[in-house]
Design a protein around this nucleic acid. Sequence first.
DNA 1: CGTATGCTTGACCCCTGTCAAGTTTGGTGG
DNA 2: CCACCAAACTTGACAGGGGTCAAGCATACG
Lengths: 252, 252
Amino acid sequence: MATSTPAILPRVSCDQCPLRQCRSFRDFSSEELGFVHDFKTGEVSAAQGMSIMVEGERNPQLYTVLSGWGFRYKILEDGRRQILNYVLSGDLIGLQGHLMEEMQHSIEALTRMTLCIFERDKLPKLFRHHPSLAYDITWLAAREESMLDEHLLSIGRRSARERAAYLFAFLDARVKSVAAPPADRPFILPLTQQHVADTLGFSLVHTNKTLRRLVQQGLIRWLDRGCEVLDTERLYHVAEWRPPKEGKRPFI
Amino acid sequence: MATSTPAILPRVSCDQCPLRQCRSFRDFSSEELGFVHDFKTGEVSAAQGMSIMVEGERNPQLYTVLSGWGFRYKILEDGRRQILNYVLSGDLIGLQGHLMEEMQHSIEALTRMTLCIFERDKLPKLFRHHPSLAYDITWLAAREESMLDEHLLSIGRRSARERAAYLFAFLDARVKSVAAPPADRPFILPLTQQHVADTLGFSLVHTNKTLRRLVQQGLIRWLDRGCEVLDTERLYHVAEWRPPKEGKRPFI
DNA sequence: CGTATGCTTGACCCCTGTCAAGTTTGGTGG
DNA sequence: CCACCAAACTTGACAGGGGTCAAGCATACG
């Protein structure tokens, strides 16, 4: 939870944005691309453990994740923490702080991250002049909502083993959907068992014992500070989960 | 879970919509009002227990709730059910089925409900010609997201007593925010203990015992098929929850 | 008046949290 | 290069929260 200042990087042109390499994102018209480039003010890099946003903040920056992993969370006064969701490449963060009075959750970098910074005050202009992009933003919000629905089902009704299986299947599907083309190398989910515990709503000890079972059954492998998924199909089956069939998806 | 056909009601003009009586909704310009009236195709009434939408449905109707209570839920194959959130007056439902491939959750009427029906295909037109309304829709999506965040925190990290306290405080605040002006009469939350259980992620038996404690401590009163909140402040305190300070909020 | 729905309660046991102690790994500085 | 330290992961013992089973009660409704 380091709090050093983030490193500001120069602004890279949007049409050579690395995210556009990825097949799962939709294409932009050159007009859209022009506006987005204008909307963009620069890039930042955030080190692992750094706070990207904190609950209660008013009108924070608006970012799109360009690389790395982060997580959204809330904490109770006595320190109990709940991880709400993870943020990956292509995700838009900070929107809530613009629409509502203030941020209702915090975001922390799980790995080193690079973020694309947008100009705070141009959001109304985006809605006025670029309905297709406005539609995309709404789409992203609806997608976040449906992920949260699924997490609620998981925490509320799935058993420990099912919950853990669901989490890894879910995250595995997400990384793969935004991975750069040669997507056959193994993906490591950069988590700590404490993160898993705070996501699933379990204690650290019980999380450890649950993961151990998944490891023994050959579903995952646990590394230092990371999880490798070995058998996605069986994870899906244990969790009784169907991966969302995402066609092309938008991002800003 | 009755499945009789919903009763189609005649279309009422939007400028005499009962929701506009309520102070917590923002005012519309006459131009906005004109479009919304055009967008609206009629009203339906749904009886208690009726299914409003079902998971997997493609391109369902788009509605705004005019009166009554409903709930969004998901179920696992073996019947375990998780209630995700409740829908009340002013809430927009069915948006997800338009933006994504298909509905990811179901909605059922908790009481008799009346719904305002919108024309399926005019959503793109709304985004093109009425940015302020598009903004409102995004606002509504962000608000739903922040409610779900709070529920996740609750289910993941709060104790049984805290969770129940949170739920009733939350629902009490919600009804009051959309109540017609003389808002001092007691509000009854029209729930079954089974609904509470499926919301909190508990068994029915344990839910009953938890509620009993809240009753004995004078925080709530339990009626047949309903809960009356007696001490909002203490509920807030037990749940360690701050009610959102909503100023004027939008609706469509 | 019988039946369905919803609410209550007690007994029992397993899942999960807490406490406590270790082990392994990677990094840092002498 | 080695000693030390902090993070992260393990493991066992024990207790309590919450699930399951089972039975009973109350109210509404046809």
